[in-house]
Nucleic acid binder design. Structure first.
Length: 252
DNA sequence: GCCAACGTTGGC
DNA sequence: GCCAACGTTGGC
């Protein structure tokens, strides 16, 4: 398998951008199952999406929230195609500088696969990355595993919203998500509050919307509508990019 | 094409 | 809500 691995960020908390809520949590994701990863407005993140193939595996990451970390596993279900939200002036990530004849921004479709049994917090990954010895509570990942974590873009360059993940690191994340072992009630914690959110009025976000108006049946409230989740990605998307690196930037 | 100013991401 | 890191923009 030439299958590759990736990590994509989304924001689980409500945040209104241009009148629309860009929230897209793991609950939203699980509810819609498949979503266009709209809104990425960063060249490097966009280039990485263009490299994706159907079946590639994706780590779903909660960003800009109380307990940032990996919350689910997903996979690419449609290869890169133009991100039509760039031409929608009402969209939070409208880009007036692009035109349909020459698409600048692209997105892929991503499909939910499963939840991480244990949310794998960024704080844990950082701890592993900064420790000379493998933290005892996750000793099962071994030194090699710890080494793989140290090389993750998530740890070495936080701001990229779409990142490549090496096979070794993927395996370690799987182990961590499956076995846990650290104090999940710690600094931020996440565990228990799991459900309840998505149900909140069923907002899903990005469904199959196309630019006309999608089907958002409910929600009369107007602007801050529920869906659009992926925008998150978008936002963060603009972050990362290359500056000094170029290491993974070779993407182009 | 360098670099300072500015804007944004996103952890804490 | 603060602010550090870092990407982007634009003057020169």
């Amino acid at each position: 398998m030439s299958q590759k691995h990736w990590l994509m960020k989304a924001e689980p908390d409500s945040r209104i951008v241009k009148g629309k809520d860009v929230k897209f949590s793991v609950d939203d994701f699980e509810a819609v199952k498949t979503t266009p990863w709209e809104g990425v407005r960063n060249a490097e993140a966009r280039n990485l999406m263009k490299e994706m193939h159907v079946g590639d595996k994706v780590l779903f990451y909660h960003s800009n929230c109380k307990n940032p970390g990996i919350t689910a596993f997903a996979e690419v279900s449609k290869e890169a195609y133009p991100d039509y939200t760039a031409w929608d002036s009402t969209h939070p990530y409208y880009d007036a500088k692009t035109d349909k004849a020459n698409p600048k921004w692209y997105m892929v479709d991503v499909t939910f696969v499963s939840r991480a049994k244990h949310l794998v917090p960024l704080s844990l990954l950082r701890t592993i990355a900064s420790s000379t010895d493998v933290p005892e509570e996750v000793s099962y990942i071994g030194e090699e595993g710890a080494k793989a974590i140290k090389g993750m873009a998530l740890v070495t360059r936080g701001r990229l919203s779409v990142q490549r993940v090496e096979g070794e690191a993927w395996k370690v994340i799987e182990q961590l998500a499956e076995r846990g072992g650290w104090d999940e009630g710690g600094p931020s914690k996440q565990k228990t509050k799991a459900k309840a959110k998505s149900s909140a009025r069923g907002r899903k976000k990005a469904t199959p919307k196309r630019d006309d108006e999608e089907q958002k049946e409910e929600e009369p409230e107007g602007s801050e509508g529920p869906r659009d989740g992926v925008a998150v990605a978008a936002k963060s998307a603009q972050t990362g990019s290359r500056k000094r690196t170029a290491e993974e930037a070779d993407v182009v």
